[in-house]
Nucleic acid binder design. Structure first.
Lengths: 205, 205, 205, 205
DNA sequence: AATGAATGAGAATTCATTCAT
DNA sequence: GATGAATGAATTCTCATTCAT
C-alpha cells in the first residue's frame, strides 16, 4: 500500500506553510501571531497545520533552523573559496545578512529578537538562542581569524572578542531599528562610524 | 471630609504594588506576567489592583516613566555640577545604569526590551520606545558635547552619532545578556574593547 | 447630644443626590447607570451614597415614588376642583404628563420603561410596575367616569377599558419614541388621530 | 477535502443554539441572560458557542433577523395572494403575530422591547430598532393601502398614520403585558375596543 | 456621618489543542 | 491525510458592596 500522497507533495505543502508563516510572523510578530493567522495565510486547515507542526513554537523554530542552516552553508562556502579581501567579506557578511537591519522592514529579525527575549526563561528557547549566538560568533570569528592568519588584519585583539562586539552592535541596531522608524536612527552614519571602528581595531589600511 | 487613609498611605500602597510588579516583571518578563501574578505578589485584590492601574500595560508604563524620570533628573544634576572628567562621567553613566547589563540579572532591562519589541506595531508603545531612545540619546550626547566643548574630547565625530552608537551597543549587549548566561558573553572583555574604542573616537589620552 | 448634622441638611443632601441621579438615569438609562456615575454626578462619596440608599434600585425607586406621589396629588387636586371641561382635563393629563413623550427627550420615561421591563421577573419590581399602572389607570378612569357622570361623555364604553387603552397607547408611543428619533414618528399626526378616536368613543362634540 | 461534518449538521447545531438561546432569552430577558446561560441551555461549550456567534448581542440579533425575515416573507406572500377580506387579513396580522402579546407568555416580545430600549443610546442597536419599526410599518400600511385601493376601507385617514397607531398600540399592549399578569390587563376588552376603533376609522361595515 | 480603599464574584473573550468523521 | 467543530483553561476587566478610619 503506497501512501496516498507523495513525499514530494508533503514537502511542498510543508514548505508552503513555512513561507506563509514567515510572512505572518513578519507582519504580526511572534507573540501576536496565532495559529489561526498561519492557517489562513497558508490556506491550510487547523488539523492540517497540526499535522506538520506541533505548535507555534515548532513552526518558528523550523524557520529559524532553516535560516541557521543557510548561514552555516554560506560560511563553509565562503571559507572554502579563495578570499581576496577578508575586509570586504566581513562587510558583506554584516550588511548582506539580516542581522544588519536593512532598509526593507520585511525582515523576520524583530520577530526573532522577540522570540528569544520572551522565551529567555524557557530552557528549550535558551538553547536555540545560544545556537543562534554561537553560530554568528563562529561566522564572524572565522572570517576575522582567517584574515589575521593571512596578515590582512592585525592581531592586536582577539578575533572572538571582536566577533562578539560585532554581534552586540548588530543586535543593538536591529533592536533599535525594530522599534524606531529608519528616519530616527541615522543608520548610515552609525554604520560608517562602526566601519571606521572596525578598520581601526583590525588595522585595515 | 478627610479621607479614610492618608494620601501617604495610598502612595505607599501604590509604590508597594509597583515594587512587587517590578519583581514579577523581572521574574516572568512582560508578556508572561499576568495581573494575577501582580495581585499575588503585591498581596492586593483584583479590584484593588485595578483601582491603581488600568491594566498591565499601565503598570509597566508607570515603572518605565519613573525610571525615565530618574534618568532625566540625574542628567540635569550631573550637568549642573562641575564635572572633573567627562570621560569618567561617561563611563559611570554607561556602567552604572541598567542600560548596561550589570552582573546582577535582577534587572528589568530584558522586560523593557520585550515590552518595546512585542509592541512595535502599536502606536502608543512606539511613542514610549521613542521617548526611551531619545532620552538616552540626550543623556549621552549631552555629556559628549560638553566634553567636546571643554576640550576634553576631540570633535572629529558628531556627538549625536557617537551617542547613538553607544545606545546601539548597550542595547545589543543587553539583548545578548538577556538570552545568554553571563559566562557565555565575556562581557568584561567586550566592555574593555568598547572602552578602547570610545577612547579612540573621543581622542581621550 | 444633638446630631452633628441637622435633619434639614440630610434632606437637602438626599434631594441633591436624587436630582443628580435623575439626570444620570436620563443620560445613561437604568441598566447602564452605575453607582459610580451617580456618585460623580452628585459629588458624593461612595460611602455617602450608600448611607442614603441601599443600591441603584433603591435610588431609582425613590425617584419613581416621588413622581408617583406627584401624580396622585395632582389627581386629588384636579378632581376636587370644579372642572369646566373634562375633555380638556383629559387632554391636559395626557399631554402634560411625561407618559406622553414630549418633544424634549430630557425625560426619564425611557429609563422607566427599562426599569420595569428588565425587572419583569423580579417580584419587587413587578409590584412597582403594578403600582405605576394602577396609578395611571385610576387617574384616567376617574376623569372619564366623572365626565360620564356629568353627562359630558357618553357611557357607551366602560371608563376602565378606555383608561387602559389610553395607557397602552401612551406606553407604546413612549416606547417607540424612546428608540426612534422624533422625525421618524409623525407624532403630531398620530396624536391627532388618537384625539379623534377618543372623541368618538367618548361621544364628545 | 470534505468537511468533517456536513453543512447540514452545522446548520442544525446553529439552529439548536438559537432555539436554546431563544428559550433562555424568554426566561431571563435580554439583559440578564449571560453567555453561560446559553451555553448550558444549548449544551455547548464556551468555545463552541463563540464559534457560531460573536457575543450575546450577535445571538439576539440573529434571532431578530430571522423573525424579521419571516415577517417580510409573510407580507409578500400575503399581498401576492388574492385577498378576500383585508379586514380579516389585518386582524390576523395583528393577532396572529407576536407583536400582539398573545396569551402564552412564551414570547420573545418582552426581551425584544428590552433589547431596543436598553440599547437606545447605541448606534447599531438603534438601526435595528428602526428596521423593526419600519418593517412593521410596511406590513400594516401595505395591507391598509391595498384595502383602500380595493374600496374595502375608506380613505379618510392616511394608511401610514393608521399603521403607526396600530404599532404604537400593540407595542404599548406588549409592554404592559410584559410587566403585568394577564389578569390585570383585561386584554380581551381592550382588544375589542381597539377593533371597534379600527373599524370606525377604516370605515368597515 | 462621611470617606474612599479594598474586596471578590461574575461576565466576556481568546486561543491552543484535541478528535470524531 | 485532511478537516474543522468542539473543548475548556486562562485571562481580562467591571462593579456592587463592605468596612476600617
Amino acid at each position: 500500500m503506497s501512501p496516498k500522497v507523495s513525499k514530494e507533495h508533503k514537502e511542498q505543502r510543508r514548505a508552503n506553510i513555512l513561507n506563509a508563516a514567515k510572512d505572518v510572523f513578519i507582519e504580526h510578530g511572534y507573540e501576536h501571531t496565532t495559529m489561526k493567522h498561519i492557517m489562513d495565510a497558508a490556506n491550510v486547515s487547523r488539523g492540517g497545520l497540526y499535522q506538520y507542526f506541533l505548535n507555534k513554537e515548532d513552526v518558528f523554530e523550523t524557520i529559524l533552523e532553516e535560516d541557521l542552516q543557510l548561514n552555516l552553508n554560506e560560511l563553509e562556502e565562503v571559507l572554502r573559496e579563495k578570499v581576496h579581501s577578508h575586509w570586504d567579506l566581513l562587510l558583506e557578511t554584516i550588511y548582506g545578512e539580516e542581522r544588519q537591519p536593512n532598509d526593507d522592514m520585511n525582515s523576520l529579525a524583530p520577530s526573532k529578537l522577540e522570540f528569544f527575549i520572551t522565551g529567555r526563561n524557557d530552557k528549550r528557547r535558551r538553547e536555540f538562542g545560544k545556537a543562534r549566538y554561537y553560530n554568528g560568533l563562529k561566522l564572524y570569528s572565522a572570517i576575522i581569524e582567517q584574515g589575521q592568519q593571512k596578515g590582512e588584519f592585525c592581531t592586536k585583539f582577539d578575533s572572538d572578542i571582536i566577533a562578539r562586539s560585532i554581534i552586540a552592535f548588530i543586535d543593538g541596531l536591529a533592536f533599535d531599528h525594530s522599534i524606531l522608524p529608519k528616519e530616527d536612527l541615522k543608520m548610515k552614519q552609525q554604520s560608517a562610524l562602526f566601519r571606521d571602528y572596525l578598520k581601526t581595531i583590525l588595522g585595515v589600511e
